[in-house]
Design a protein around this nucleic acid. Structure first.
Lengths: 202, 202
DNA sequence: ACCGTGTTTGATCGACCAGTCAATCAGCAT
DNA sequence: ATGCTGATTGACTGGTCGATCAAACACGGT
């Protein structure tokens, strides 16, 4: 080895740029040269680390996922009580700040592309599975402690996640009828529904 | 005028083809020649009716919306009771048959593109508004008749719609943890939640 | 200093494709 | 028949962009 490897650093720099460009203009309009420019390097270098544009974007999707998950971990750890935990977790998904909005935008690109690419469907499966696993876990904890109502935790998690995805989509599209505030209200109502009725399931 | 116009017919034929291609391979991979081939015509003809590829795809998005709405009208009309109406309406959005799946796929393309195009955000606003208006109306009717629980009908509609969008997305992505059957179950649970409180009342 | 390997560059190539256009066709009127 | 105009065609052009590559560079070991 003739020099210390810069690979990890450079890859991250490029992937970060790719995510930024993706969130800004989308996969359809994304040019390798855009990513190179954003990463302050050349198209040659981008291709040195990622053989094809497809590889680059797929890696960016994965990078976006890893980062999103990483950002949530401290949020989960910060709360003891399942109710606070779930609330903080849901709150962290509201497209309220720029970082979260960008992450959502990349996410949507992944969805769109995954409709026609099996590899990406698998990535989505991993991601969605992870998220569902975490949320169902928190819900189950809460149920054990008697602070959430009974019912299949997986079904409840799926409902919540589905709702968050769908609502976030509309917020991202700047729908006048679905602002972040409104989304927060709807999520709050859903969470209250989970918390209040501590009896009969169906 | 030297001959009866074929414009309406030809436009529809091309838009139908465009939607089909969109649902099949997405906007990013869509070539004007793909649409022409699917419509059994030439690229020249496609450009005769749609100045640019962008115009074509935007028109296709609108066409997809009009059709989706048109398909729902008879479904709504077929039921008298708000509960049945809402159930049938929600059921009609499950990505269970090919037509509905294709419509959803085009829808996702619209979302994705609309993230970076103001025109399309407006289209989404119209569409989403229409859908929300219909659903909130049914819910309000049900509340007036005492068969749905109380609560802001718009918030309830938004929750339901959001959930449907998010869940449908995962179904489209062939998630193992979110099949159509599971989605139906989750939606049923949500609808029962709406209906429940009145089961034993009045 | 020199070598070897890892890294960077940007000019260049080749493929692809939206959009143009000149030519042609098809229906209707007179 | 003839002329008019809407409709259709597909070859062609101009531009774009992913990917390649030869050359240069940077670092660390010897």
């Amino acid at each position: 080895m003739a020099r210390t490897s810069v690979e990890a650093e450079r890859r991250e720099q490029i992937l970060e740029a790719a995510c930024h460009v993706l969130s800004e203009i989308g996969f359809r309009s994304l040019r390798v040269s855009d990513v190179a420019k954003r990463a302050r390097t050349s198209t040659g270098t981008v291709h040195y680390y990622f053989a094809t544009k497809r590889d680059l974007v797929h890696a960016a999707f994965e990078y976006n996922f890893d980062h999103s998950l990483g950002r949530r971990r401290p949020i989960l750890d910060a709360h003891e009580h399942p109710r606070d935990r779930l609330r903080a977790f849901v709150e962290s998904y509201l497209p309220a700040d720029e970082v979260t909005i960008r992450a959502w935008a990349v996410w949507v690109e992944l969805w769109c592309e995954a409709l026609h690419e099996d590899d990406l469907q698998e990535l989505n499966e991993r991601v969605y599975g992870e998220w569902r696993r975490i949320m169902a876990g928190v819900i189950r904890d809460g149920q054990d402690q008697g602070c959430f109502r009974e019912g299949d935790a997986v079904v409840l998690a799926n409902s919540l996640i589905g709702m968050i995805d769908g609502l976030a989509m509309q917020v991202l599209l700047r729908s006048r009828s679905m602002t972040v505030e409104r989304m927060r209200a709807v999520c709050d109502a859903a969470l209250e529904g989970l918390e209040r009725e501590v009896r009969h399931a169906s």
